[in-house]
């Protein structure tokens, strides 16, 4: 082998760093986009980044609790998707827009 050798297995830290990068991608999506549906998709990105670190901890520590949490997070995300999209629909029906900066009725 030369000076550079490929790792033979992926350490836990790599999964955690990947998860952090994906989470921040979601955060940037939420703060830069105007479309409520894309903001909603960015929130899903963040939820999935957390799921990734949960599964990583679960697999590397040999504890099933992490994967149980992922299961419940998915159920909550499904509920959130249904309610969130219903709110977007109601918003569009009343204001003819899905751009969050044009919705200011709750702004003080």
């Amino acid at each position: 082998m030369g000076a550079f050798s490929l790792p033979t297995s992926i350490p836990l830290d790599y999964y955690l760093i990947l998860s952090a990068v994906l989470f921040v991608t979601g955060v940037v999506g939420v703060i830069t986009r105007r479309n409520a549906i894309i903001i909603f998709m960015s929130i899903e990105l963040m939820l999935n980044a957390v799921n990734l670190s949960m599964v990583a901890f679960s697999a590397f520590l040999g504890d099933v609790a992490g994967q149980m949490f992922v299961f419940f997070i998915m159920a909550v995300a499904a509920a959130e998707a249904a309610v969130g999209l219903a709110i977007v629909l109601a918003l569009f029906r009343n204001r003819r827009t899905v751009y969050v900066d044009e919705v200011n009725i709750m702004k003080w």
Binding site: D13, A20, A59, G62
Partner: peptide, 27 residues
């Protein structure tokens, strides 16, 4: 925020370099 989270991982490595031996069983 990204730097903070990555530094938290890099600054305190977990030392876990391979899957737990039960990993295939619990999933």
């Amino acid at each position: 925020f990204a730097v903070m989270m990555i530094m938290a991982v890099v600054g305190g490595p977990s030392g876990k370099t391979a899957l737990h031996e039960n990993a295939a069983m619990i999933g």
